[in-house]
Write a protein that binds this DNA or RNA. Structure first.
Lengths: 166, 166
DNA sequence: GTCTTTCTGAAACGCTCGGTCCAGAAACAT
DNA sequence: ATGTTTCTGGACCGAGCGTTTCAGAAAGAC
């Protein structure tokens, strides 16, 4: 998962994978069906993990939970290259429906977490606002990858939040 | 440019390019230095074109110019796969500073167009808001690529705009 | 016409890719 | 120790990649 995260699917070679896992090629193919299969499993794993972490951020945030979630999404500290699933959506979803489906499910879960954070009693009513928050956080990932300074991105998020808040 | 747009850099082969241009391999290498060089030129061309179009959308919009711009950015009708430059930022910018630089310049120009549309007299004062608009539009591109229905995306944009408006 | 320059189709180059194969090492049971 | 099963390093495969090369066609100059 970590290798795919760093390099993307196409740019990751079998040698990269076996090297990172300490496996020989034969063991690799004895354990996994193919690079594709491993990749899809890595995506599922990433999604589960990411959603669990985000939920924890939302639950343990002191003060504004939405702000904490946006910060976590927009600045994946430790994550080597933004959000793995967003990268994959951009790279592969238009040509691979399985990837698109995993990505769709992941994004919808994020929106739901936002909606619950905004209004725990009536999350359905704030669904569109939740969607706006998550789209905004995802958008800033592109800025970050392009090398826009972190403080400018933070100001953007802060500005958006202060206006989007109820 | 169109081929790179559809398939991304890595997935585009020399045969794809020469086929689309009606050139033989020798003519291709006689005209361009390499796939890389052609790619960077295609990016520059795309950026120029896209900014010109967006400016025209902003200038000729009847009613809310910001809304028209966001619609244009988020739904690249005719564009085969979202915004070429956003795709490239995701795929290549972390490993190629030249791509990152072109992307950064492009994003900054988009923000400036938004700022001018929001307040022609004092664009600098609304820079952060402009940045939020463009990040939001870019974020929805990911939703679209993942296959989220268009009407949901439109509602998201509308919701965000109505709250972000001054 | 002929000479010169510019172009181009096709073959080939060296390399890397994802995936397969198998002789033999390692582990285990008896 | 022996027989059986499980694993693995490394060679190998066919295919595709970006790039180079070059004989010969096309075009132009005179």
């Amino acid at each position: 998962m970590r290798v795919f995260w760093q390099k993307g699917f196409e740019a990751t070679s079998l040698d990269d994978l076996t090297g990172a896992m300490g496996l020989s090629r034969s063991s690799f193919y004895g354990t996994f069906d193919s690079k594709q299969t491993l990749f899809l499993r890595a995506l599922e794993h990433y999604s589960r993990n990411g959603l669990r972490n985000l939920k924890e951020v939302a639950d343990t945030a002191e003060g504004d939970a939405v702000a904490a979630m946006m910060q976590a999404l927009s600045d994946p500290n430790g994550g080597p290259r933004g959000c793995l699933l967003v990268n994959c959506i951009t790279e592969l979803a238009p040509h691979d429906e399985r990837v698109a489906a995993i990505g769709r499910r992941h994004l919808e879960s994020i929106e739901e977490l936002f909606a619950r954070a905004i209004d725990p009693d009536n999350p359905d009513a704030v669904r569109d606002r939740a969607s706006a928050y998550s789209s905004l956080a995802i958008g800033t990932l592109a800025l970050r990858k392009a090398g826009v300074p972190a403080d400018r991105i933070d100001r953007t998020l802060q500005q958006a939040r202060s206006v989007l808040s109820p």
